[in-house]
Amino acid sequence: MGKSNSKLKPEVVEELTRKTYFTEKEVQQWYKGFIKDCPSGQLDAAGFQKIYKQFFPFGDPTKFATFVFNVFDENKDGRIEFSEFIQALSVTSRGTLDEKLRWAFKLYDLDNDGYITRNEMLDIVDAIYQMVGNTVELPEEENTPEKRVDRIFAMMDKNADGKLTLQEFQEGSKADPSIVQALSLYDGLV
Score class of each variant (00 low, 15 high):
Gly2His: 04
Gly2Val: 03
Asn5Trp: 14
Leu8His: 03
Leu8Trp: 04
Glu11Lys: 06
Glu11Gly: 14
Val12Asp: 14
Val13Glu: 15
Thr17Trp: 00
Arg18Tyr: 04
Arg18Lys: 03
Lys19His: 15
Tyr21Arg: 07
Tyr21Gln: 08
Glu24Leu: 13
Glu24Gly: 10
Lys25Asn: 12
Glu26Gly: 15
Glu26Ser: 10
Gln28Phe: 12
Tyr31Gln: 15
Lys32Cys: 11
Lys32Tyr: 14
Cys38Val: 15
Cys38Pro: 01
Gln42Ala: 10
Gln42Arg: 09
Ala45Glu: 06
Gly47Val: 06
Lys50Ile: 05
Lys50Arg: 07
Ile51Pro: 03
Tyr52His: 09
Lys53Ser: 14
Lys53Asp: 05
Lys53Pro: 02
Gln54Tyr: 04
Phe55Ala: 05
Phe56Cys: 05
Pro57Val: 04
Gly59Trp: 03
Gly59Gln: 00
Asp60Ile: 12
Asp60Tyr: 10
Pro61Gly: 11
Phe64Tyr: 03
Ala65Thr: 12
Val68Gly: 12
Val71Pro: 11
Glu74Asp: 14
Glu74Ala: 04
Asp77Ser: 03
Asp77Ala: 14
Gly78Tyr: 12
Ile80Leu: 08
Ile80Lys: 15
Glu81Met: 14
Phe85Lys: 13
Gln87Arg: 11
Ser90Gln: 00
Arg94Phe: 13
Gly95Tyr: 00
Leu97Ser: 12
Asp98Ser: 00
Leu101Arg: 06
Ala104Phe: 05
Ala104Leu: 01
Phe105Glu: 15
Phe105Pro: 02
Phe105Thr: 01
Tyr108Lys: 13
Leu110Ile: 06
Asp113Thr: 02
Asp113Ala: 12
Asp113Phe: 05
Asp113Lys: 02
Tyr115Ile: 13
Tyr115Ser: 11
Ile116Val: 05
Thr117Ile: 11
Thr117Gln: 02
Arg118Pro: 13
Arg118Glu: 10
Glu120Lys: 10
Asp123Leu: 02
Ala127Gly: 07
Ile128Met: 04
Tyr129Leu: 01
Gln130Arg: 11
Val132Leu: 05
Val132Ile: 04
Gly133Ala: 10
Asn134Gln: 05
Thr135Asp: 06
Leu138His: 12
Leu138Glu: 04
Leu138Ile: 08
Glu140Trp: 13
Glu142Leu: 05
Glu142Met: 01
Glu146Tyr: 12
Arg148Ile: 07
Asp150Phe: 10
Ile152Tyr: 13
Phe153Ser: 05
Phe153Thr: 00
Lys158Ser: 00
Lys158Gln: 12
Gly162Ser: 01
Gly162Gln: 07
Leu166His: 11
Gln167Gly: 10
Gln167Arg: 09
Gln167Leu: 15
Glu171Ile: 09
Gly172Lys: 00
Asp176Asn: 07
Pro177Asp: 10
Pro177Lys: 12
Pro177Thr: 00
Ser178Lys: 02
Val180Thr: 02
Val180Ser: 04
Gln181His: 07
Gln181Ala: 15
Leu183Gly: 11
Ser184Gly: 12
Leu185Tyr: 05
Tyr186Asn: 05
Val190Phe: 01
